[in-house]
Design a protein around this nucleic acid. Structure first.
Lengths: 220, 220
DNA sequence: AATTGTGAATTCCTTCACAGCC
DNA sequence: GGCTGTGAAGGAATTCACAATT
């Protein structure tokens, strides 16, 4: 089986969101050209992305919105309910647990974990139970968790991640600002606020430098 | 001036974090080889990344930790204080505003914005003032905000972003799950929880498919 | 006539391999 | 000897351009 490029998967998710909107608007078909225009992409990009998984279009017509949406949903496995466990009941962890965007999806946050006795046993506003992180493996099994989100300090992230992996979890999203290692068969996605902000900071420097360096360059 | 690849900038931020740790541990020099080992990267990658900005190493010895950290900090513009404004005082917005990781950095969340009269005028636990989003432009100027973080619903994101751009902001980090457009001279970073989770979902499907497809492939 | 699906060309990024230096 | 900096090679992802199809 051919390997699917990571960027392709990311874009499928983006296409899907757009197709859902189009479907609600009653649009029946759309061409790769029209779709591409919405994302500042080239139409060939979209056709190549989709072609990785089969032939979904109709030549001369384009793609049937409803059918394509359904196909991408299946490709991404979004037709199957997924239970998410969030580890770390700090501000971020609670924000994710109570994220309202999940309500119309097949994702459910089924458990929140923490090691603070003052939090264990409580529920979030939207009713997500907070468990003792010591019971991680048991709750992962009991609640059939598929995906774990790490929302905890960098210092303990790898150690907790190791337990998550040991419990058989194959998909992890980490918000911890630290380097993490997982076995090959575990998919790890990292969202690093620090890295994002550092990149933005650099772009601001670049702005400034462009002027300064022009001056320097012209200086013989 | 040559264009710097985006992945390079992301990695510089990662290197910097590691170098800070090394410096605290009292390590004086490190080779690209040793550094690379910590990130499962190739040593040439690190040397190429750094070479984009100058010659920081010593042949035969490696890089002086303290000096390199300081250089990367300057490259990323992290030696200059930056004021961040967060728009949207929901769970996520407040989580970011009160993020303790900023305390040891030059990033400061200097303002939080919302359109809910019940929230305007309040302060977060850590003392960030919540302003009326109507006063966006004025507060951006008064507080000298450099970077804006969007932590608001997809429906209003573009509209608010347009105002942010109009106010002269050149760096934006968005958590809104929607396609956004900015002029060329504005740097936009998007963190999309939905896309991240969709990718993880797909990896779980791939897991399953590998087995199924093997069977199908062997079927003559 | 319009639009897909795709080999070929291109661009971008990573890795190799080694000359140059400490 | 050991390690950096870098031109050349290799690989991966994007874009081009067109034959195939409805």
């Amino acid at each position: 089986m051919k390997k699917i490029p990571e960027p392709t998967i990311d874009r499928l998710s983006i296409y899907l969101r757009c197709l859902s909107t189009l479907e609600k608007e009653g649009v029946e078909t759309i061409s790769s050209q029209e779709l591409a225009a919405r994302f500042n992409l080239h139409s060939a990009q979209i056709r190549k992305d989709l072609a990785q998984f089969g032939e979904f279009g109709v030549r001369g017509t384009g793609y049937h919105v409803k059918r394509l949406r359904s196909c991408i949903e299946r490709i991404l496995g979004l037709d199957v309910p997924r239970n998410i466990g969030v580890i770390g009941a700090g501000n971020l962890g609670r924000a994710i647990a109570d994220y309202e965007g999940f309500l119309e999806t097949n994702f459910t946050v089924a458990a929140l974990f923490d090691n603070d006795p003052a939090k264990i046993g409580l529920k979030t506003k939207l009713g997500v139970q907070i468990y003792d992180v010591t019971d991680l493996k048991q709750v992962i099994k009991d609640k059939s968790l598929d995906i774990i989100v790490l929302a905890l300090p960098a210092t303990v992230a790898q150690q907790v991640l190791d337990q998550v992996v040991e419990a058989g979890i194959k998909a992890v999203l980490s918000f911890a600002p630290t380097q993490l290692n997982v076995p090959e068969d575990v998919k790890l996605k990292v969202v690093d606020l620090t890295v994002s902000l550092d990149t933005l900071s650099q772009s601001l420097v670049a702005h400034r430098l462009e002027e300064n360096l022009l001056v320097t360059d012209l200086d013989p």
